[in-house]
Computed example of a mutant assay.
Amino acid sequence: MVATGTSAPPTVSVSRHTGDLFDMTADAMVNPWNRNFIPRPLLLARGVSGQLKKLTGAGPWDELAKLGIMPLGGAAATSAGDWTNVENLIHVAGLNWRWRATPTSVARSTRNAVLCAQQIRARTLLMPLIGAGTGGLTDAQSESAIHAGLAAFPTRVNAAVHVYIVSLPSA
C-alpha cells in the first residue's frame, strides 16, 4: 500500500526513546529505505534496513519490489514477514539517487509514513532517525526534520497515531 491523501489528517502524539529499536513493539515500524530503484539482491543494506532484512525474511522485500520506484519522501506499507514485534513495515524513500538524505526528504518521509500508518490503522509507529548515518544527516538534523514532518498534523494526548522517535544511546 502506497500512502495517498486521506479525508482528514490523523492526530498524532509523539514521544522520544533512546535504546534498541528492535526490542520495541508497535503496530508498525518505519524502514528508512531508498527510492526502491536498485533490485534488492544487489543491495548490501546497512543500519535499520540491514537489521530488518535479518529479522523479517524475504516476504516484505518481495512485496516492496512489486511497488516499483518510490518518489522521494514516499511511503509504502508491507507486512513484517517473520518478525513478530510489529505487524507492518512502512518503507520510506528518505534517500535520493546519490544515497543522501535531506531535511526535506526526511520531513516528507515522516509525513507520508504517518499517513500510511493511518491508512493501515496502525495506532503506534516506531520511527528511527531517518537519514542519520548512511543518509549523511546527524542525529539532531534527522530528529529536527522528523519533527518538521510531524508538524503537519494536529497533536493530541489521545491521538490516532502515537509516534515513538527512537535513537541509539550515545557512545
Rank of each mutant, 00 (worst) to 15 (best):
P32Q: 11
E87P: 01
P71Y: 11
A28V: 02
T124H: 01
V92M: 03
T78G: 03
A75K: 06
G81F: 08
P9E: 05
G59W: 02
Q141V: 03
A76K: 10
L52A: 10
A75P: 05
V161S: 01
A26P: 08
K66V: 15
T18C: 13
G131F: 15
M29C: 14
K66Q: 15
V163A: 02
R111Y: 15
W83V: 13
V166W: 06
V48Y: 01
D27Y: 12
N158E: 07
R121D: 15
G81Q: 07
P39G: 05
S49A: 12
W99H: 04
N88V: 05
L64Y: 12
M24F: 09
A8K: 15
A148K: 05
A145H: 00
T56A: 09
V92F: 03
I69Q: 12
L137S: 03
H147A: 02
V12I: 14
R121S: 13
L55T: 05
G94M: 11
A113I: 14
D23Y: 04
V14Y: 02
N88S: 06
M29V: 09
I165P: 00
L64V: 14
V86R: 09
V163C: 03
D20W: 15
V2C: 00
G94H: 05
W61N: 00
E63M: 10
P154S: 06
S15L: 05
V30A: 09
A80N: 07
A159P: 02
R35H: 03
E87V: 12
V106G: 04
N88A: 12
L125Y: 08
I130D: 01
G133Q: 08
L67A: 09
A159C: 07
L115T: 14
R108W: 10
T6E: 15
P169I: 06
V2R: 15
G135Y: 14
Q118G: 01
P32F: 07
R40K: 04
R100W: 01
L64S: 04
Q119E: 10
S13E: 07
A3Y: 11
T4D: 12
N96C: 06
Q51G: 00
N158C: 03
M70Y: 02
A65W: 12
T124E: 04
G135P: 08
G47S: 00
